[in-house]
Computed example of a mutant assay.
Amino acid sequence: MAPGRKTPAANCARCQGSAHSPATCDCITDGRWCHGFHAATDDPDRIRGWWRAQPRFDVGVACGAAGLLVLDVDAHETPLPERERLLPGITIGAHVRLDGLRHGFHSLALLAALRQEADPVHDTSTLRVRTPSGGLHVWYQTRPGHTWACSTGSSPRRALAWQVDIRAHGGYIVAPNTVTSSGRYEVLPGSPAPAPLPGWLETELIRTGHQSVAVPRQSTGHPTPFRARQAVIAAGAGRDSATRILAAALTTVADCRATPEGASFTEKLNRAAFTTGGLVAAGHLDQHAAETVLLEAAEHARPGQQHRCASVIRAGLAAGMRRPLVLKDDRP
């Protein structure tokens, strides 16, 4: 990055004067730093060459190439947007008072509270970096084969929450401990490394249209049951977001088969049932079909435990059906 700034270093004169695609630019193949994160590399010789040429360079990380997704939480004191823009896809009734909601820390906390999950801002299990402007970067490692799209928290097209940007494929993030003219990107107490992206955040990112590419994961030898996979396809009925959410929920449960103990199976089954209940309440899936596919995935993961699994599924579905999942595909 440019010395003392959080923006990429300037292109060479030739690239500055020509509008061309980074994919076809000879500068990148020649080892130049043109075109920002498109030139990102982990080649130590190339990096040393860049620093010899410009010792004051700062560091940026290409999120997609590094398998990272970073929540960029802003703390700008700006007027609240319309209610439907606070948590896109989630209805916040007029009876809900928003007097204390002022920035991204509050909107992210609200989303976590609605999902009965811990606020990522306080997640000491992962790398967190305080920005000079008072914001926060929460770093997570994504699962292999999952590619997530960037977004800004004020976008009408794709957003997780107001003033919460997503830095992922096609974007970059300022490295921890970088010092710019505005101050230091300070690492907060807790883990010094990114933790795996939490399952509930993954579900929310799918719901809000951030999953740009879904590359099939390597087979564990225990695929999701055939009828369950067929139900996933049928449940979509033209609603791509609902299909992806249901598929992710079933896969999380079925994949527990590879870990007979210590996989938090009951918690994952309950969470999957809760999510599926939200799809049922929103009209994306019949309740009987939902219970059937969840039972099939559970039986695949934990054979012979149908009675116990059925109780977990019914409780999770009932709770989820009180919170309809409104998706982008549902909007006029």
Score class of each variant (00 low, 15 high):
residue 275 T to P: 05
residue 181 S to K: 13
residue 318 A to C: 10
residue 45 D to M: 06
residue 51 W to Q: 12
residue 134 G to S: 10
residue 6 K to F: 09
residue 20 H to Y: 02
residue 331 R to I: 11
residue 104 G to K: 00
residue 60 G to A: 14
residue 62 A to R: 02
residue 71 L to W: 06
residue 30 D to H: 10
residue 289 A to N: 11
residue 287 Q to E: 14
residue 290 A to M: 11
residue 81 P to N: 01
residue 287 Q to H: 14
residue 179 V to R: 14
residue 134 G to I: 13
residue 312 V to W: 03
residue 292 T to S: 14
residue 85 R to D: 14
residue 117 E to F: 07
residue 45 D to K: 07
residue 174 V to H: 03
residue 18 S to Y: 02
residue 106 H to I: 00
residue 281 A to P: 05
residue 126 T to K: 02
residue 169 H to F: 11
residue 171 G to C: 07
residue 250 L to K: 06
residue 295 L to P: 00
residue 214 A to P: 05
residue 269 L to E: 05
residue 209 G to W: 01
residue 299 E to H: 13
residue 209 G to K: 03
residue 323 R to Q: 15
residue 57 F to S: 09
residue 188 L to M: 14
residue 154 S to Y: 03
residue 33 W to G: 06
residue 300 H to F: 04
residue 246 L to H: 07
residue 184 R to D: 02
residue 263 A to S: 15
residue 143 R to F: 13
residue 106 H to P: 00
residue 166 I to Y: 03
residue 293 V to M: 09
residue 190 G to M: 08
residue 300 H to A: 15
residue 239 R to G: 04
residue 170 G to C: 10
residue 107 S to P: 07
residue 94 A to V: 14
residue 331 R to E: 13
residue 262 G to Q: 09
residue 237 A to L: 05
residue 139 W to T: 00
residue 7 T to D: 08
residue 58 D to G: 15
residue 155 S to H: 08
residue 129 V to C: 08
residue 125 S to E: 08
residue 295 L to F: 03
residue 249 A to W: 02
residue 296 E to H: 11
residue 293 V to P: 01
residue 278 G to W: 05
residue 105 F to M: 09
residue 271 R to M: 08
residue 293 V to S: 04
residue 1 M to D: 03
residue 120 P to Y: 09
residue 259 T to S: 11
residue 186 E to Y: 01
residue 2 A to G: 03
residue 85 R to Q: 13
residue 129 V to L: 12
residue 321 M to H: 03
residue 134 G to E: 09
residue 144 P to I: 08
residue 242 A to Y: 02
residue 102 R to T: 14
residue 184 R to T: 15
residue 102 R to W: 05
residue 170 G to E: 09
residue 10 A to Y: 01
residue 59 V to Q: 10
residue 185 Y to L: 02
residue 294 L to E: 04
residue 9 A to N: 01
residue 319 A to C: 11
residue 311 S to M: 12
residue 205 L to G: 01
residue 55 P to T: 10
residue 150 C to V: 13
residue 220 T to L: 14
residue 51 W to Y: 15
residue 222 H to W: 14
residue 321 M to F: 09
residue 195 A to Y: 05
residue 222 H to T: 11
residue 179 V to I: 15
residue 79 P to I: 08
residue 310 A to E: 13
residue 184 R to G: 02
residue 145 G to C: 12
residue 246 L to Q: 07
residue 302 R to I: 06
residue 140 Y to V: 00
residue 78 T to I: 13
residue 115 R to L: 07
residue 108 L to H: 00
residue 270 N to H: 12
residue 39 A to E: 04
residue 90 I to P: 01
residue 50 W to N: 05
residue 46 R to S: 03
residue 38 H to C: 06
residue 278 G to K: 05
residue 321 M to W: 09
residue 169 H to G: 07
residue 8 P to Q: 11
residue 201 L to S: 01
residue 57 F to E: 08
residue 299 E to T: 14
residue 290 A to T: 09
residue 307 H to P: 00
residue 318 A to W: 02
residue 286 D to A: 15
residue 54 Q to Y: 04
residue 208 T to H: 01
residue 98 L to I: 04
residue 53 A to F: 03
residue 273 A to P: 02
residue 282 A to F: 10
residue 186 E to N: 00
residue 35 H to F: 15
residue 271 R to T: 12
residue 19 A to F: 12
residue 332 P to R: 13
residue 158 R to D: 06
